[in-house]
Design a protein around this nucleic acid. Structure first.
Lengths: 245, 245
DNA sequence: TAAATAGTGTCTATGAGACATTATGTA
DNA sequence: TACATAATGTCTCATAGACACTATTTA
């Protein structure tokens, strides 16, 4: 890239002044719909102060490189890395997107920290593959209702609430529903997933009608077989491989 | 607030390890609809390297305090401060919200910088009150089309594009339209504002119908007088004071 | 009077909400 | 057979898009 006159020299001589910098953390709201049709969030129990023993969202600090040439990892890359460290899952199979930057002074009692929060959706059939890693003494899926009733470290309650609201919004406008169900699913399963995110009951008939429109448009297709339930088995579907999230 | 056992002592003895930190910048996409019904963005010409002489979004660095007790300004407060420094406008009269955090390594050639971008909407009738401040040698409103055709410093092109897309989205679901027109406005003026943001022509009749629904619901009300135009004058309206953005 | 733009009305297709009804499995 | 739930159908209302038409001002 062409540089403007003098820019090269300027940069060569530039010494970042010694003004104070915040730490930048990346926290991830990892969500899934568990077997009991409950929207659940992955929490880790902190084994260090502050908030020792308290449940928190998985996260870590952005890695900043030592030089101008090597500035470290991209912000998004940090989120991918954290997700992988905490769950063992890669973004190929998990929806991951930025949520919001939380930067209130005093939100971390140790030092100034700006947290860039991300949210991730784990398809339920990948749950068995989630293997906790990192330095967390405990990792656990908790229903969002339970998590919101209990205590969370830092301002993670706010982050969680924001994330759930975002997913509910996105559900109506984008195709993130793919990431809320397994590779195959039934209409009632998908409906239950919707209900668990929005917290509202949906009319089965009307939900079906909208679903059928998806089938006609090719977004979703019949898969062989039926899913056994307590009563009448349900037809099985899958998302069409090509149409992207 | 009750602290857990040992947390007080931990914090008293805590020394933030010397890992590297990024700078955190706040950049603001200040948008308005100018008299020629063009969506325009406030740009400042950089008078320092890097990108000296190139137009950029107004912005600055987050101020971080010296101690754990005084951690500095909130992230949102930094955005408010920057907005005020660059335009002299307070958030009472200007819509201001967070857009996205941009944190690619190398996006600033001086050092690692994570930029948290905000977007602001300035009602057109406040344009005369915008008085450029700060250290920028020049401040200017530029039509978004022109800005996108030219060069912008850093990754500000991407930030601008993201902001315009966000506003277009919000326009359909929220009440930010308030901030795109003056304290009084005509239906064609509001329609022109919509068109300038979305880039699409809207049917006058259908737009009117939706507008009338707003009048019925009390969101908007007739204001006295008529607005003179080149032909038939248009009725004047205003948003109802109480219903919030 | 012509040009221009404000303002009104209408037809139709689509989609959402609120049901009622039928079908097919299990206990 | 009773029960549970999958699957379908129907009625109504609100809304969006396309478009034709009328009204009122200035040049």
């Amino acid at each position: 890239m062409m540089k403007r006159d003098g820019e090269q020299q300027f940069l060569a001589q530039y010494r970042p002044e010694d003004f104070r910098r915040p730490s930048v953390a990346v926290d991830i709201v990892v969500l899934t719909v568990t077997a009991n049709a409950q929207l659940s969030v992955l929490l880790v129990r902190r084994n260090e102060h502050p908030f020792k023993g308290v449940w928190a969202l998985p996260g870590g600090f952005l890695r900043v490189g030592p030089s101008v040439k090597d500035q470290g990892e991209d912000l998004d890359a940090a989120a991918v890395r954290e997700l992988e460290e905490e769950t063992g899952l890669s973004p190929d199979v998990v929806f991951l997107d930025q949520l919001h930057a939380f930067g209130q002074a005093g939100r971390d009692p140790r030092m100034r920290v700006v947290s860039v929060a991300y949210y991730a959706l784990v398809p339920p059939d990948l749950l068995p593959r989630v293997r906790p890693g990192g330095d967390a003494s405990q990792v656990r899926w908790t229903s969002v209702t339970a998590a919101r009733a209990g205590e969370l470290a830092f301002d993670h309650q706010i982050i969680l609430t924001t994330a759930v609201a975002r997913v509910a919004e996105q559900l109506e406008t984008t195709a993130i529903a793919r990431s809320l169900v397994g590779s195959t699913f039934t209409i009632p399963e998908l409906r239950a997933a919707f209900e668990s995110v929005t917290g509202k009951k949906l009319d089965h008939g009307n939900f079906r009608r909208k679903f059928n429109a998806l089938v006609l448009s090719g977004v979703v297709e019949r898969a062989p077989g039926k899913r056994a339930t307590a009563s009448k088995p349900a037809a099985v579907y899958r998302f069409h491989p090509r149409s992207d999230a």
